[in-house]
Design a protein around this nucleic acid. Structure first.
Lengths: 336, 336
DNA sequence: CTGTTAGCGCATTCAT
DNA sequence: ATGAATGCGCTAACAG
C-alpha cells in the first residue's frame, strides 16, 4: 500500500507548455516569471493536484525544512506548554517541528539527537534534559541550536535562561507585602544551583526590605513532600516563630502544609504559604497554593522564534523571561 | 550555517574498494554479501563516520520511514499518555513518529494532515479530533491509517474503540458492590454519544442488579463543574434520597461535591461519589476521587503496533481495550 | 524572462 | 557474490 502522486514538475511543465525550470521558479519564486506564464503554471498545478516531493527537494537543496525538538516527558505540564508555544510559533513558518522525548535519560537523548541529525533537521531545540555540555557544544557546531534549561559555556546567546532567583525574590516580596516579617524558608537540595538561586532570591528580598535573615528560619529539604514535612519539624523544634513559609517547590510545600495541619495551624488564616513550580494540583488543593510558574508557552515561542532566525542567519536575541507569581488563597489573608 | 557530512556511499565504496551497489547491499542487507567484503565496508563506514542521506534514500525508495501522528492538545493528560505509548512502541522500530497538534480545530487538522501527507509519511495515526468521516476515508485510501476516537464506516478494523458504556457500567457496579441501591447520576450533554453511552452503562448496571432505575435520580449536566452543581440542586429539589452519585465526568463530579459540602454532606462518609476521566487533580483532591480512566499509554502502544503492521502489509488486529476503574477514597466507605 | 543541463545520494535492475 | 548503469524529482547554475 503505497501512495504515489506520480505528478511531477515535468508533468505540469508539459501541461503548461513551459520548461521545468520555470515551474520550479513559480514554485519557489526564486526568480521573476511573466505573470501570464505564472498563471498557466499555477493552473496546471491545480488541475493535476500537484504535490512537490520533499525528498527530491531536500536532496537538491540540502534543506529539510524541519526543526528537531528534544523534550522531556512530553506529557508533563511544563513540556506540554513549551511544545505548545513552539507549535504556535512554527505554525506560521514553512518549517515543521519534529518532536522526540528524551524521558530525562541521557543515553536516550544522545540517540535521539543523532536521529534528528540523521533526519537532517535544519535546526535543533533542546528542552531540558541531561546531555553533557560537550555534546551540546558539538551539536551547535553541526546545526543551529537553541537550548532551554542549561547554560552552555560558549553558547550563552543561544541559551534561554529562567531566573529562579527572581522568582524566589518575587515570592518573598509578595509575603512581605502582605505584612509578614518572620518568613521561614524550606530550601531544596543546596547542592543544586536552582535551589541555591531560590534561596538567594529569598534572602535578598528580605534584605532589600530591611529584614535581617534569620538562619534558624531556614531548613534544607529536597523538593519532596516528605522532606518538607521534616524540615518543618526542624523549624518548629528551633523555637523561633514565623507567620509565613516560602517552600522552594510545591511538593515540599505540601509537606509544609501537612506539618501545619498536624499542629492545628491553618493556611492561610494562621500562616501564609508560598510554593514554587505551579504543579497542576496546586490549583486544586485546599486552599489553592500561591506559587511561582515558568511561563512555558512563552518560552517555547521564544525558542522557536530564535531558531528560525538562527537558521536564516538573521540576527536575533533571546528575550529575558520572568517567572510568574500566581497568587492563590494560601496567602490570601494575613491577620496577625 | 549548513551541515554537510559530505561522505556518501561512493566514498566508502572507494575506501573499501568495492562498488556502491555492494555498499548499498550491506547497508540494507538486501542481498547476500561475502562476509569479508561486508566487514571491509562496515569498517570503512565506521572510519568515515558515514551517515546515509535520508533524502536520497527516500527519493530512491519512496519511503520516508516516518509515521504521522495527529493529536489534540498534546499537553493534556490523555494525549500526553497516548503519545508516550506511541513513542514506546515506535522506539524499537525503524520508524520515527511525526507529531502535530490539531487543537480540536477541524480546519487546522485538515491542514496538518495535508502537511503530513506532503511529508510522505508511510502511515498515519489520527487521535481524536474533528475530521469528517469522509476525510478519514479519503486519507485511508492514500496511506495506512489508524484512528482512535471515531468509528469510521468501512474502516472498522482500523479504528481503536473505547467503551464508555462499559466504563460507566463498572463505575456503577462498583457503587452497587459497596451496598448502594439509590444511586444518582449526573449525565453529560445527552446530545453527544459518549454521554449517552455512559448513561446507558449506568442504567444497565442497575438493571443487571435488579435495581429499577429512577428517572428522578438522573439530572443532565454538561461536563462542567458548574453544571454538576446545578444538577445536584435539581436532584435535591426532587426530594428523592440517594446514597451515591455517579458523575459522567470528573469535572461535574467536583460540582457535585461542592453542592454536597454546601449542605454539610460528607464524601465518602455520607455519600459515595464516582467520576469519569481521571483528570490529574482527581488524585489530589480531598478526598481523592474514584473514577474511570482510559488506559491511554496502552492505547497509544496498540495504535503504533497496528500502524507498523499495516505499513508492512502484515496481518494485525486491534485489541479490545477496557476502561479502567480507579478506586479512591471518595467511595472508600459506606456506612449507612 | 525562459530553457538546458548537470548533479544531489541512493536503490535497483541487469549483467557478469 | 559483485559491478555498471539508470532513474527517483527537484534545484541551481549556466546560457540564451
Amino acid at each position: 500500500m503505497v501512495q504515489k502522486s506520480k505528478i511531477t514538475i515535468a508533468d505540469i511543465a508539459t501541461k503548461a507548455d513551459v520548461s521545468i525550470s520555470t515551474v520550479s521558479r513559480v514554485l519557489n519564486n526564486t526568480a521573476p516569471v511573466a505573470e501570464s506564464t505564472r498563471q498557466a503554471v499555477l493552473e496546471a498545478m491545480q488541475a493535476l493536484d500537484y504535490r512537490p516531493n520533499i525528498f527530491a527537494r531536500g536532496l537538491a537543496s540540502g534543506q529539510s525544512m524541519t526543526v528537531g525538538v528534544l523534550t522531556q516527558h512530553i506529557h508533563s505540564p511544563l513540556y506540554g506548554s513549551l511544545i505548545r508555544g513552539i507549535l504556535e510559533e512554527m505554525d506560521n513558518s514553512p518549517y515543521t517541528p519534529l518532536f522526540v522525548d528524551g524521558y530525562w535519560q541521557r543515553q536516550r537523548e544522545e540517540r535521539l539527537v543523532e536521529t534528528l541529525l540523521r533526519r537532517r533537521v535544519d535546526g535543533l531545540i533542546i528542552l531540558g534534559g541531561d546531555l553533557p555540555l560537550e555534546r551540546l557544544q558539538e551539536a551547535a557546531r553541526q546545526v543551529p541550536l537553541i537550548v532551554f534549561g542549561q547554560n552552555v559555556p560558549g553558547l550563552e546567546t543561544q541559551c534561554l535562561q529562567l531566573d529562579d532567583y527572581e522568582g524566589a525574590y518575587r515570592a518573598t516580596e509578595h509575603l512581605i507585602a502582605l505584612g509578614h516579617r518572620r518568613i521561614a524558608h524550606v530550601t531544596g537540595n543546596l547542592a543544586h544551583s536552582d535551589a541555591v538561586a531560590r534561596r538567594d532570591g529569598y534572602l535578598q528580598a528580605l534584605r532589600d526590605n530591611r529584614i535581617e535573615p534569620v538562619p534558624e528560619l531556614m531548613a534544607e529539604g529536597e523538593y519532596t513532600e516528605q522532606s518538607g514535612l521534616i524540615a518543618m519539624e526542624m523549624l518548629f523544634g528551633r523555637g523561633r516563630t514565623f507567620s509565613a513559609v516560602f517552600a522552594a517547590n510545591d511538593e515540599s510545600g505540601y509537606g509544609v502544609r501537612l506539618a501545619l495541619y498536624r499542629r492545628g495551624i491553618r493556611v492561610p488564616e494562621d500562616i501564609s504559604l508560598v510554593g514554587f513550580d505551579d504543579i497542576p494540583s496546586s490549583a486544586y488543593t485546599t486552599p489553592p497554593l500561591t506559587t511561582v510558574r515558568q511561563p512555558a508557552t512563552e518560552i517555547g515561542r521564544a525558542a522557536a522564534e530564535a531558531i528560525l532566525k538562527l537558521i536564516q542567519d538573521e540576527p536575533f536575541e533571546l528575550p529575558q523571561i520572568s517567572m510568574e507569581l500566581i497568587i492563590r488563597e494560601s496567602t490570601s489573608r494575613y491577620l496577625k
